[in-house]
């Protein structure tokens, strides 16, 4: 077990190096001079451009720049953006907010998704099953910004039941609605995954044996069938968590949440390569760790999957 974890941690190093280099190369290969739009609708003075390029190592060839960047990164320095703001300071403030939002969204989708999936699965072909299938199809079909803007307008602006936007403190109460919106599409996927797997496992020989041995239906489904059905769901949720961290751009904009998604977007928009690479590096790291956690969870859910 510990050997396995150690091996996985060591494997992360080449992945991290490779992915950061690809991102670094891609971001800085984008056309356009980052100073061109900095002085309003006019070109910047040559001295300004020169100082800017020198401060941000823009004159060095790409491999040298990457080496310098990684050297700083190894010492825990994520660099300063083109606007002279430390990336680490930004991320320290933004990651907790986004993590809170993504975590709450995950709780929503797991709770509602699994319960709906189980209810549909055990009554296959009945009303409940059809209801879940149709309603999830409906949610998947609507773009997330429509759900977000509609709920914001009715619950926030019109009826005043929820705060319209999220304050800088980003309290749990304020994040309830955005987290619900963010998790809504995934709820549908989780419900459908749970249902399909449960239906399949309900037909499995081991379940028939368990019931024949005299186990109650509730215990047979809850302990045996559901546990085996959850493996694909856990995989999905793990991947989804990483996606939610970086991909909550739309939800963050609608509710004005100062999180990672919006930061990434403005970074790309402003040609601010340093902030993009810094954010993504941390994202890659989180993604790898979450995936490791998911792999370890497999062993818990199904003891036949061993990590030794």
């Amino acid at each position: 077990m510990y050997k396995y974890i150690l091996r996985r941690l060591l494997q992360m190093i080449p992945v991290l190096l490779g992915s950061t280099f690809i991102i670094f190369a891609m971001v800085f290969a984008l056309p356009g001079d980052p100073t061109a739009g900095m002085c309003g609708e006019r070109p910047c003075a040559p001295a300004f451009v020169a100082k800017f390029k020198q401060e941000h190592n823009l004159n060095d060839p790409l491999p040298t720049r990457y080496a310098k960047y990684m050297g700083n990164l190894a010492q825990g320095d994520l660099g300063t953006t083109f606007r002279d703001i430390k990336v680490a300071d930004e991320l320290k403030q933004r990651y907790p907010t986004t993590a809170k939002l993504a975590g709450m969204a995950i709780i929503f989708e797991t709770l509602i998704g699994v319960i709906a999936g189980v209810m549909a699965g055990i009554r296959k072909g009945k009303f409940m099953d059809n209801l879940v299938l149709v309603s999830t199809l409906f949610v998947i079909a609507i773009p997330i910004f429509v759900i977000g803007a509609t709920l914001q307008y009715y619950l926030g602006v019109k009826w005043g039941l929820r705060p319209v936007t999220v304050s800088p403190q980003a309290t749990v109460n304020e994040l309830l609605l955005p987290a619900f919106v963010l998790g809504s599409t995934s709820v549908a996927y989780v419900a459908r995954l749970t249902r399909t797997n449960l239906v399949e496992n309900l037909r499995a020989d081991y379940l028939r044996t368990a019931i024949a041995k005299g186990l109650t239906r509730r215990r047979a489904i809850g302990l045996h069938a559901l546990r085996n059905s959850l493996i694909p769901v856990v995989t999905f949720i793990g991947a989804d968590f990483g996606g939610l961290l970086g991909g909550a751009i739309v939800t963050e904009r609608i509710f004005n949440i100062q999180g990672v998604g919006g930061y990434l977007f403005t970074g790309i928009h402003n040609r601010d390569g340093v902030s993009v690479v810094g954010t993504v590096t941390v994202l890659v790291l989180v993604f790898l760790l979450v995936n490791l956690l998911v792999d370890l969870l497999y062993g818990v859910l199904d003891p036949r999957i061993s990590h030794d």
């Binding site: 803007a149 914001q152 307008y153 926030g156 602006v157 005043g160 705060p163 319209v164 936007t165 963050e252 904009r253 609608i254 509710f255 004005n256 100062q258 919006g262 403005t266």
Partner: peptide, 17 residues
């Protein structure tokens, strides 16, 4: 108060926030 999106600011004004 810094907004990323003018729609969010506008909705906050309607709701007196």
């Amino acid at each position: 108060k810094i907004y990323q999106d003018e729609d969010a600011a506008y909705n906050d004004v309607i709701a007196n926030q």
